[in-house]
Each structure stands twice: as structure tokens, then as C-alpha cells.
């Protein structure tokens, strides 16, 4: 049995070595994309007031180390103060209220292949019949690998 024992040891050793050896780390994308509204044209800025019936161009700068894939914009009311934005400074919120006809804007967009920086620009007219008050505007971007970044801004919609 001594002979097979020796083989056994060699096999064990071989497997330990095989399992510990590092191989590929070849160009694996491990970076999230970035999303930014804190530049001159970025819109909306934190605590902005938007007027019903007006048309605005929502703009944010997105970038990625490898390749961008898609982005989305979600605007929903924050009448119940359920969440807050991730920007510096706090916006003053109106008292809580019940929604009757809140504005819901939900849309996804894809980014053409091969880009690593992109300025997203979405032109929106705020409907005239929606509830005014506190809203929450969330941007999101995903890269080709599936990494996602989000940012959100507190805004107010007024008459």
C-alpha cells in the first residue's frame, strides 16, 4: 500500500497547488459606471423648483471605464417623505399629503455601443393636471457588464 499512498500524496499536493494557482484576471470589468448632475448643465439640481406645463431638459453625465449600456429616469412623488436624495444639503419638504393624481414618469433608454462617456438628455413637459409638491427624480445607469450606479435629487413641482 505504500506505493499507492505515495501517489495519493502527490495527487493531493498537485490539487492543492492547482487550486491555489491564480490564472486569469484578464481584463475583467470590476468598475461601476458613474453618474453626475453636479456640473453647470446638469439638471435638475438639488431642491430645484419645476413649473407645471413647462418643458425641461433633464441632463446628467454618465461614464464608464469599459462601455456604457443603458440608463433610466424615474420621477415619482415624495408626498409621504419615504425617501430622500443623496445630494449635499437638505431641501425643505412640504407637509405630508395624500396623492390624488401624482406624476409618474418611468422610462428606460439604451446607449449606443462603444461609448465610455455620454451626456443623457431627456426633454420632458410637465403635465398640467398633476399634483404639485415634492418629487423625487432618480437617474440610473448600467454598464455592459451589469454594474449599476444611481443618483437621486429632491425637486419640487409648483403651479
Amino acid at each position: 500500500m505504500g506505493f499507492s499512498t505515495k501517489y495519493f500524496y502527490i495527487l493531493v499536493l498537485g490539487l492543492v497547488l492547482a487550486s491555489c494557482s491564480t490564472d486569469d484576471n484578464a481584463a475583467k470589468d470590476e468598475q461601476k459606471p458613474t453618474i453626475d448632475i453636479n456640473y453647470d448643465e446638469g439638471f435638475p439640481q438639488a431642491c430645484s423648483q419645476l413649473v407645471r406645463g413647462e418643458t425641461y431638459s433633464f441632463k446628467a453625465m454618465v461614464s464608464d471605464n469599459a462601455e456604457l449600456a443603458s440608463y433610466s429616469l424615474d420621477i415619482h412623488h415624495n408626498f409621504d417623505h419615504h425617501t430622500h436624495d443623496d445630494q449635499d444639503g437638505e431641501c425643505s419638504l412640504d407637509p405630508k399629503k395624500t396623492a390624488t393624481n401624482p406624476w409618474i414618469f418611468i422610462e428606460n433608454y439604451s446607449i449606443e455601443d462603444g461609448l465610455t462617456t455620454y451626456e443623457l438628455s431627456i426633454s420632458l413637459t410637465i403635465p398640467n393636471d398633476i399634483d404639485t409638491g415634492d418629487y423625487h427624480c432618480s437617474f440610473s445607469v448600467i454598464d455592459k457588464t451589469g454594474w449599476q450606479s444611481r443618483t437621486s435629487v429632491d425637486i419640487k413641482i409648483i403651479e
Binding site: V12, L15, V16, S70, S72, D74, N108, W147, Q148
Partner: peptide
């Protein structure tokens, strides 16, 4: 030690697409 091969590991893959603004 062990060596293991999965022919078809079921994996919840984060895609680069959205459904109603959720990844």
C-alpha cells in the same frame, strides 16, 4: 482539497437592461 465542476450553475445575472427603471 476538492475540485468541482458545474455544467450549468443557475446564476442570477445582473443584466444591462431595465424594467421600469429597475435593473
Amino acid at each position: 482539497p476538492f475540485v468541482n465542476l458545474f455544467e450549468n450553475f443557475i446564476y442570477l445575472n445582473p443584466t444591462s437592461n431595465y424594467y421600469e427603471t429597475l435593473q
